[in-house]
Amino acid sequence: MGNIKSKKLTVLLVDDEDRFREALSRQLSVRGFNVLSAANGEDAVKMVHNNAIDVTILDQKMPGMGGTQTFNEIKKIDPLIEIIMLTGQATVDDALEIMKQGAFDYIMKPMTIDELLFKIEDAYTRKVLMEKKNQKK
C-alpha cells in the first residue's frame, strides 16, 4: 500500500447502515487507517469541519441529507478531500452524475475490502498530487 502506509490516512465513512459501517470501520482500522464514521450527512459535515479527512466513503442513498447534498457540503468545506461514492442500486446513473461534479470514483455494494482499498489508495494518490499542484501555484 506504499503511500498509504507511510502516513496514517484518515478515512471518513458515511452510511446509514450501522452494522455495515461498523464492520467496514473495523476492517479499515486493522489495516492501519484512522477511521471516522457518520450515520448521516449532517454528522459527516460536522466531522469534516472538525477533522482533517483524506478520503471520504459516502453512501449515495441516505435519509435526511442525501449523498449528493452531503458531497456538495463536504466539497464546499474542503475541495481536496477525495470522495468515493457508495451505491447499492443496480443503476449507477446518480453516481456517474456525481463523478462529473468531482467525486473520485464510485463503488457498488456489496464489495470486498480489497476492492475498497484499491480505490482508497488511488484516491489518496490523487489527493497528494492535487495538493502538490496547488502548492506549486
Binding site: Q27, G88, Q89, M108
Partner: peptide, 15 residues
Amino acid sequence: HEINNPLAIIISTSG
C-alpha cells in the same frame, strides 16, 4: 438497493 445493503453487511462482516 435494499438487497445490496444487507449483502454489503454480510461481505464486510465476513471480512
